[in-house]
Each structure stands twice: as C-alpha cells, then as structure tokens.
Amino acid sequence: MKDSEQILNVYLSHRLHLVDVAAGIIGCRARAEDIVQDAFIKATLVQKKGTEIQRPVSYLLQVVRRLAIDFLRFGRIRNEIDVADIAVQNLLCDPRSPETYVGNREELAIIEGVLASLPDRTRLAFEMKRFGDYKLREIAVVLDLSIGRTAQLITDAMAACQAALDNAAPRN
C-alpha cells in the first residue's frame, strides 16, 4: 500500500475520533472538522516530501492536538465575529424599517458605552485592531506588550461588547 493511501485510510477510519479530539479542545465541532482536514493535508504534504510516518494514527492525533491548541492561542482573534463591525454595518445598511434603524443605533450606543468604560490600553488595542486595521504585532509594539497579552486585551474588549449586547433589553 502506498504511503498516501495509508494516510487516507487512517484519516477516513479515524476521522470521527479526530474530530471529537479537536472539538474537545476548542469547543466547536464545525471548526474541529476544519482542523482535522488541515491535519490530513499536513500529513499528506509531509509524506509527499518523502518522510515516512511510522504510526499514522498517533501522528494525526498529535497534529490535530497541535492545530487545535494553535487555534485557541491565535485563531480566536482572527476568527471571532466582530460585534462592533456588525453594529456599524447594520447602521450603514439601508434599514427596512424605522424600528430596525433605532435598534441598530441602540446597539451602537451600547458598544460606544462599553468601549468608553474599558481601560485605556484595552480600548486602544481594540480600536487599533478593529477600526485601524493594525496587526497584533504592531499594536503590541505601540502598547509595549506581548502579542499574547495584546490578543487577550482585544478578546476582553470583544467579550465586554458581546456581554453588553446580550444583557441589553430585547427589542420587540
């Protein structure tokens, strides 16, 4: 059996277990599916370079774990739904009704209030990332922080905005 067929057979026969492992780490089954597919591609590329994989099941499990941990470290910032951008886009869209317009304005006011209440570095990091389109490393240099700490500040701001929107009185 060719090496590529061996990896394919292992992938197909253990895919559900690999997805379970990734989902257990990141907490999202849909993204876990992506991680498992990425792991398969990485394993295939390693074999194409001529490297023999002795224990393909163990190898794929390790790649899945590492990709899932990398997602937790770095992916959340890149893949997080930006509630502030959604509120701004909703405001700029042609509203279907006056109620929608008012609701969008209320959401934007909530986000503005949350941002004003955040510590300066947290607010500045969030604004630089979301409105200034700066990269994490650029923000980290400006704020004299590590990239990890900068990412955490942005995540904290995002979580504060989302929590405020979730706690706002529902619109009728």
Rank of each mutant, 00 (worst) to 15 (best):
E107R: 13
L61C: 10
E33N: 06
N90W: 06
S146V: 00
E127H: 02
R149L: 04
L115W: 00
N90L: 14
R96A: 15
A157Q: 08
L143E: 01
A151W: 00
Y59W: 04
T44W: 13
I86D: 12
A125R: 04
D94I: 13
L145E: 06
V36Y: 04
T44R: 15
Q152R: 13
I7R: 02
L16K: 15
S97P: 09
I81P: 02
A159S: 14
A22W: 04
V142F: 04
K48P: 07
F131Q: 13
Q152W: 05
L12S: 06
D156R: 14
N9M: 10
F126D: 03
M1N: 11
R78N: 07
A140E: 01
D70Q: 11
M1I: 12
T122P: 03
A164H: 02
I110Q: 09
R76H: 07
G75M: 05
I86Y: 02
Y11N: 02
R31I: 09
K2A: 13
A23N: 08
L115M: 09
P170M: 11
A23M: 08
L16S: 14
L12C: 11
D20M: 13
E112V: 04
V21E: 08
V21D: 03
R149E: 04
A169M: 12
D166K: 12
N90R: 15
V142K: 14
K135D: 00
N90P: 07
E112C: 08
N90D: 15
P98A: 11
I86L: 15
